[in-house]
Structure formats: C-alpha cells, structure tokens
Design a binder for these strands. Structure first.
Lengths: 153, 153
DNA sequence: CTAGGATGGTCAACGTGGTTGTCCAAAACG
DNA sequence: CGTTTTGGACAACCACGTTGACCATCCTAG
C-alpha cells in the first residue's frame, strides 16, 4: 500500500493539465491570439470542422442555447467564428470556424504535439504511453465530455 | 515515437481530475453537503486549518480581496466558515472553518484516499505510483497553485 | 391543405463571481 | 503626533451562466 495522500492525485493531474493548457495559450498569444481563453478550446472542439448550430453547441457544452449563443457572439467578434444561414432550413444558422478559427485549431494541435514530445523526452516514451494507457484504463474510454463551462462555479 | 495525438494528453489528465472531483462531490452531496462546488475545495485548502484573512485568502487564490470577501460570504451563509474579530488587531477579521467546515475537509480527504485505493486496484499500486512520480517529474515539484478561480473564464 | 406542435434563435431580467475605484478605521512608522 | 500602510466594506460594472417569453419556421396528423 502506498503512503501518498489521496488528495494529491487530483492536484497532480490538474497541474499537468493546466501546464499544458497554459503553454499552448502562451504560445498562441505570442502568435497573435492573445484573447483566447482555456475554455475556448473546448468550444472549438465542440463546434468541429464541419460547424454546428447554437442549440447543438449548447447540448455539447452542457449549457443552455442562450449561453451558447453568447459564447458564439464573443468568438464571432474576435473573428474566429461566423454565422451563415442554412439554405435548407431558414430557422437554423450554421456556426462555422473562419479561416482564422481553422488556423488556430490546427496550430493548437501542433503545439500539443510538441508539448507531448517534450514530456516524452523527460520521462521517456514508454512511461508516457503507460501514463496515457493507465489513465484510459482507470477513467474508462468514454467519449470526452465537453460540458466544462459551468462545471466549476 | 508514439502515434498518440498530443491534444489527447491534456484531455485524459482532465478527465481523471474531473472524475475524482465529481466522485467526491457526489459522495459529499449524499452526506448532506449538496451545495459544495468543485471550486470550494480550493477555497478550503487555501484557508487551511488555522484560518486566514480575506486579503491573504485573495492572495492565495489569485483574486482581489473583494472577490475573496464575496466567496467567504457565500461559504459563511452555508455554515462552513465563520468570521471572528482578531483581538490583537481590530482591523483584521479571522476567517476560520466551522466544525462543519472541518468535518467536510476531513471527510473529503478520506474519500480521496478511497478513490486513490480504487485506482490502485485497477492499474496496480506500482503503476499508480509511477503515474504520480512521472507527473511530478514532468510538471516540476512546485508548490500547488491555488489560483484557479478566474483561470478558466 | 391546414392546424398544432416542435424546433431554432433572440431578447430581457436575473444571479454569481470576477473586476476596479472609493472610503474608513486601525495599525505602523517617521 | 502626523503620515503612510493595511484590512475591510460598499458601489458600479462586466463576463457568463441561468429562466422565461416570444417569434418565425418546419414537421406532421388529421
């Protein structure tokens, strides 16, 4: 039986998570995206390359459609999203990433890859793979939940 | 070189973190503490067994003293904190955990221990120790930063 | 074909939790 | 003893979540 206090485990996971996210956003800020917040990554992920609607986005993020609408407003003002009418359904407004949005998504993925490579050099690729595999084992391989926005609070 | 996409790493860390936090709060809610939010754990941790002041709490949480004051108001209303005048300094108001506050902190630690034991049975105690050690190696053994409140947003 | 329900989006009002600015009482210090 | 520093509170404001209401549009049952 290990003697490590149990409450340290979530803290260590969170520190790792936070360092990765902070590193990505520091680099993105350096490259011309100073207004992106950690939360926006989840939003981009929830919108996806194909776009979606405000209602569907709200469902994926676990918030009301109104809250999703406000989030879209903000990212639209920053130039990362655009709204387009759906020719097949006059009620719907398709929310899509702009070129700038696609660019930042692609760039984020690259930076995450680089950061993961750094981790691999520090603890070794084997240990990193083991770490990831163990996390999957213990948390279950469920699809990632994006409903983070109101989760803290 | 591993082929795992880099952006999955922070997600896996976050899922682990979130599952632990959610499990603790689900159990606490079951035991009569339905109003506690994930964030409150950081607040309790920042206050500590000995108590602090609003200004110092704000420093530890990385927020203004006014924001710290509001947070204290809320947890005071819920019966977890109490304010007491400092006999040695009439300006200061000592913020301390109530008996209820101490109880929930102790209980949380127990639950975290139980959850860690569960993880140990699923991936084995050595792998769990390795996971924790690797996280420390890669993130640095820095003291835990509690300045989480405004971090997302 | 039309009446009625379901769906997508927006507006308004509100609560919470953060911010800054101001002010006051008490302590610390020259 | 006057001045500066400190701890706390109050106010106004902003970001972001909530509900409730409303409207246009689509879908479907009769």
């Amino acid at each position: 039986m290990s003697t490590e206090a149990g409450f340290l485990l979530p803290l260590r996971l969170f520190v790792g998570f936070r360092q990765l996210i902070d590193a990505v956003h520091a680099e993105l800020a350096r490259e011309g995206h100073p207004d992106l917040r950690p939360l926006h990554g989840f939003v981009f992920q929830a919108i996806g390359r194909d776009g979606t609607t405000a209602v569907e986005l709200g469902r994926r993020l676990g918030v009301s459609k109104q809250a999703a609408g406000k989030t879209i407003d903000g990212l639209e003002r920053l130039g990362y999203l655009e709204r387009a009418s759906d020719p097949a359904d006059a009620r719907r407004k398709l929310v899509r990433l702009t070129d700038r949005g696609h660019a930042v998504l692609t760039r984020s993925a690259q930076i995450f890859d680089e950061l993961r490579a750094e981790w691999a050099t520090r603890i070794g690729p084997e240990r990193l793979r083991a770490l990831e595999a163990d996390l999957v084992t213990v948390t279950g391989a469920e699809a990632f939940r994006l409903d983070v926005p109101g989760w803290f609070g």
